[in-house]
Design a protein around this nucleic acid. Structure first.
Lengths: 233, 233
DNA sequence: GTCTATATTTCGATAGAC
DNA sequence: GTCTATCGAAATATAGAC
């Protein structure tokens, strides 16, 4: 690393910039993106004015337009940062706990519980971005690539675990990742509206299905005997 | 347009009204709600003006405010109609095909394929409404009740099927419905961004998991032999 | 009940000073 | 690069005619 100027061109990656101006620039960028993530998640993209975002970031609309060209550009930049962050967190989480039982529980909790840094708006932003992606061709392909990456990482992590434990995944890693991600997303959305309807244990146990494991495990006792099912909540 | 036959019996229910004024009123209501469903789904609630909705319904903002008091009221009315329609369709679908194999396939296709009457914006509106519900206390409890009803219907339909075939659901109907709905929703959202990543057969097969059926069935051939998994797309 | 017209506010985006 | 000031457009909601 040469701590030289490299004044005009794009600074090397997103590492710490050298000059005070570049520092200020990156700081402003980060503050605007963070504020956008918070506000877009809590109120929605179209319900938030560019001025509100700038104000929340302790900047003005001028800075916002100078950096991103407008609200739409800010959204795209947010998507990229969002993508990187999630990939990093996911990789760290997978590397951390090799047991998919704890792993699934951790993932589920990270989806449903308020996060210390990103608050409880994680799922809201995820869905907000999905809506924009499903509607417009500008955001669509980018978010599609992100989901593809998440599926791949997830699937490979599970494949590694299966290989290590001698098991065999019943499906390709990509398809396994798609199912796991689908269950997590669909259940998290229901959980958000009615937490009691989707207990933690239910999701964690159901996630074993895509891995080819039978659902009968230790956590939940099987139904007593003749009754077709229990109606306990 | 003189209302000659004032057959003013008590206007029973939401059936066809008697007087021309009432007819016109219900027609306007319906047109506004349909236009709102279409536009809210395609562009989002906050991105659509009240005037645009009224225009698409061949009415004016005055009529909209007279009926619903504003855009928010229109959204709430839409939610109620939406709830009834989905419940009816779901009940009809369940009653129609008793085999859950075909049943799941039909449900999945109805989620992912363009519908002749409601177009391809079904999922978009569903997610749009979810976002509003997750954000505001006005919409939240209403949509939560709707999901609860869908889970109950779904679960009971599956419990009936299980009882008829001698099988036993590994979980309560509510929990089974929650899992099935979760898989459908989460997979449909991925499918929307990248249809190839979530093949039809994958979802239909995976939906057997929550029913307690083993995944190895007729549709998909098991992996050849020693290979841990195939990487085919 | 519905329409026309409008009052009031707010938004997105830009120009120019520093 | 960032801020102040501002313009034109568009939004919500209302008032009054029919």
């Amino acid at each position: 690393m040469t701590p030289r100027t490299a004044s005009r061109t794009t600074a090397s990656r997103t590492a710490a910039p050298r000059t005070p101006q570049a520092r200020r620039k990156e700081l402003t960028r980060g503050r605007l993106i963070d504020a956008a993530a918070e506000l877009f998640a809590r109120k929605g993209f179209h319900a938030v004015s560019a001025e509100a975002v700038a104000e929340a970031a302790d900047r003005t609309t001028g800075a916002l337009y100078s950096h991103f060209g407008g609200k739409e550009g800010l959204l795209l930049a947010l998507l990229e940062v969002w993508k990187e962050r999630t990939a990093e967190e996911l990789a760290a989480e997978i590397a951390h706990s090799p047991d998919p039982g704890d792993h699934f529980g951790a993932m589920w909790r990270s989806l449903t519980r308020p996060h210390p840094v990103r608050g409880d708006s994680w799922l809201l932003l995820e869905v907000e971005l999905w809506l924009h992606a499903a509607r417009g061709p500008a955001v669509g392909p980018r978010l599609a690539r992100r989901y593809e990456e998440v599926r791949a990482r997830l699937g490979e992590g599970l494949a590694d675990w299966a290989r290590a434990t001698g098991t065999t995944l019943p499906r390709s890693p990509e398809k396994t990742g798609a199912l796991v991600l689908g269950v997590l997303l669909g259940c998290a959305m229901q959980h958000r509206l009615d937490p009691d309807a989707v207990p933690d244990a239910l999701v964690v146990e159901a996630l074993r299905g895509p891995l080819g494991l039978t659902a009968t495990t230790a956590t939940a006792p099987p139904p007593p005997e003749g009754g077709p099912h229990d109606r306990r909540r």
